[in-house]
């Protein structure tokens, strides 16, 4: 069983390094150029569009929170969705899952080993790009005259705080991968939910009367405002995200247990033998 975990983790080492470095470079690009345009950024202070997206580009801390802390996890989230759906639904589509299921393993073991391996891979990506972003900020801080009231460690902590969001996204995607008939249908629905969740968070931030909608957006449970550097994340909200991940992981176990591999059916089409 441990070998399935090893295979799942080690077969992704290139992707882990690639995503980690890629996101660090994104971070370097945006953080690195800020000092050159610092005096022009105040012009964005009252732009409604950025307010809609929950962005504050007028201060360096706000800019970092808006671009690095908010955007990087959104980009990584897409990768998390692809990983989670790909590990079961994707392998089923490509035909490799049939051999794994034919091994003497309980289905819950297959789901659990793949989940643990991929959550470790996602954590490694976050550790790499968190460290990369913090390093970039340290270099920028040391080489610019622009006032920066955020430390590299605060940035690192803020970025890693998005991990529970990744866990929640992973759980929901994993479940859809076992519930929907194919990878494509699971991916389509999950991307729709992902965009809707982000949209709900943005709109409810902007319109006071829709504030209650925030409850339904996973993004609202992660602090991406400038306050994240001083106050950190709300631990209670992060626990909610972990709980969402755990609940959907449980649903994925249940759904995968009854799934007819290679067939691509909806759950209600899966006849369970009562004999």
């Amino acid at each position: 069983m441990f070998n399935l975990f090893k295979h799942e983790l080690f077969s992704r080492w290139r992707a882990v390094i690639g995503w980690g470095i890629g996101l660090s470079m994104f971070s370097a690009l945006y953080v690195g150029v800020y000092p050159s345009f610092a005096d022009q950024m105040t012009a964005f202070a009252n732009v409604e569009f950025y307010k809609l997206l929950g962005m504050d580009l007028a201060s360096f801390a706000g800019y970092i929170a808006s671009i690095v802390v908010q955007i990087l996890p959104i980009i990584l989230g897409v990768n998390v969705i692809m990983l989670a759906i790909g590990t079961l639904a994707g392998e089923e589509d490509s035909g490799t899952l049939e051999l794994v299921v034919a091994m003497p393993l309980y289905r819950w073991q297959i789901v659990a080993m793949k989940t643990v391996a991929l959550l470790i891979a996602i954590l490694l990506i976050m550790l790499i790009f968190g460290a990369g972003s913090a390093l970039v900020l340290a270099i920028v801080t040391a080489t610019t005259d622009v006032a920066i009231d955020t430390t590299p460690m605060q940035l690192y902590g803020a970025l890693l705080g998005a991990y529970p969001l990744m866990v929640a996204l992973f759980g929901v995607s994993l479940f859809l991968g076992t519930f929907m008939p194919s990878r494509r249908s699971a991916m389509t629905l999950m991307i729709f939910l992902y965009i809707a969740s982000y949209g709900i968070n943005s709109v409810s931030n902007l319109v006071e009367s829709l504030h209650w909608l925030k409850t339904f957006s996973l993004f609202s449970y992660v602090n991406t405002a400038v306050s994240v550097f001083t106050e950190g994340h709300d631990v209670g909200k992060l626990l909610v995200l972990l709980a969402v991940g755990a609940v959907f992981f449980g649903l994925a176990l249940w759904s995968f247990e009854g799934r007819n591999i290679t067939v691509g059916q909806w759950p209600w089409q899966r006849a369970r033998n009562s004999a």
């Binding site: 003497p104 309980y106 591999i261 899966r270 006849a271 004999a275």
Partner: peptide
Amino acid sequence: MDVIHPSSGRATIFGMDCQKEGVAIR
């Protein structure tokens, strides 16, 4: 192989139920 579940009826291998004791069979 318990890759898919039967709608009805049952299958056994080595006297064990393919659905309930799949791991021991495999």
